[in-house]
Each structure stands twice: as C-alpha cells, then as structure tokens.
C-alpha cells in the first residue's frame, strides 16, 4: 500500500518535472524556428494564383508524435470525471500541430519551395498498452509547395 503510493507520487513528480521541462524547451525551439521559417507562407486556400509555367508544385508534409507525461495524463483523466476543458491536452496538441507545420515547411524549404497551399491536418490519438496506459497524439500536416522552376528567374 505505502509502496504503491510512493511509486505513484514519484511518477507524478517525475512526470510533472520532466514534462514541464520538455514542454518549455519544445516551445522555445518552436518559437525560434517559426521566426526562421517565417518567409514561407503557409495557407489553407486551394487555388494558387499563379500559372504552372513558372512553378512546379509538389506535395510536402510533416508529422510528429508527441506523448503526454504521467502527471498530465492523470490530470486529464481526473478532468474527464468532472468534465470541462481538458487543459492537459491543449498544449500537447498545440505543440504537435506547430511542430508538424514546421517540419512541413522544412520539407518545402529543402525542395526549394516558396509558399505552401492547401494545408490540411490529420490528427490521431495513439493509445497502446493495457487499458490505454500509453497515450500520445500524432499530427500530420500536408500541403502543396510551389517551387520556382530553375532558370525561370
């Protein structure tokens, strides 16, 4: 009984400490890279107002799987008992989405793309283990990058 309680509290403390540290670090990196890749506009509209003569188009995508920490998962399942906004998952999804966009932009950059159109997202939760003891979300962002043809300039 005491042993279980101690293990539980230790896991909570570890989850809180490491989870918070990882989240802060991730946000710092996201914000820095967003500034860097700011010159590649990413928009959700379908039609590119350019003719196909000067540009090639190519599918670009970025995906990420991020896991929730012990503390947050526990807080989230407490929240599902009471109801209301599940704040534990908000930052998780926000991070996952922005990371996926960044990876997509990096993909576009590596292909020489200037702008990404028609962005779409796929979100899926991946639960594994006995009674969903491993919880994580996958976000995939994909769109079409316009790539300036070589020699067109």
């Amino acid at each position: 009984m005491y042993l279980e309680l101690i293990i539980f509290l230790t896991l909570l403390a570890f989850g809180y400490g490491f989870g918070r540290y990882a989240e802060k670090k991730h946000y710092r990196s996201i914000i820095a890279r967003e500034k860097e890749l700011n010159n590649i506009p990413a928009i959700a509209t379908k039609h590119a107002p350019v003719s196909g003569q000067q540009h090639d188009s190519n599918l670009v995508m970025g995906s990420v799987v991020i896991s929730i920490d012990y503390f947050k998962r526990f807080a989230a399942s407490l929240r599902t008992l009471i109801g209301g906004r599940v704040t534990s998952y908000e930052t998780l999804l926000d991070r996952a989405r922005r990371e996926a966009i960044l990876r997509m932009k990096e993909d576009a950059l590596s292909q020489g793309g200037d702008i990404i159109f028609n962005i779409k997202f796929e979100t899926s939760s991946i639960f594994k283990g006995k009674k969903n003891t491993v919880g994580s979300v996958e976000v995939l962002a994909y769109g079409t990058a316009l790539i300036l043809k070589q020699g067109a300039h």
């Binding site: 929240r79 599902t80 008992l81 009471i82 109801g83 209301g84 906004r85 599940v86 704040t87 998952y89 908000e90 999804l93 926000d94 989405r97």
Partner: peptide, 8 residues
C-alpha cells in the same frame, strides 16, 4: 482547438 470532456 478545444479539448473537452463531460462528467462521468
């Protein structure tokens, strides 16, 4: 985005 739950 918004994540929500109903009470048990």
């Amino acid at each position: 985005s918004s994540v929500r739950a109903k009470h048990v």
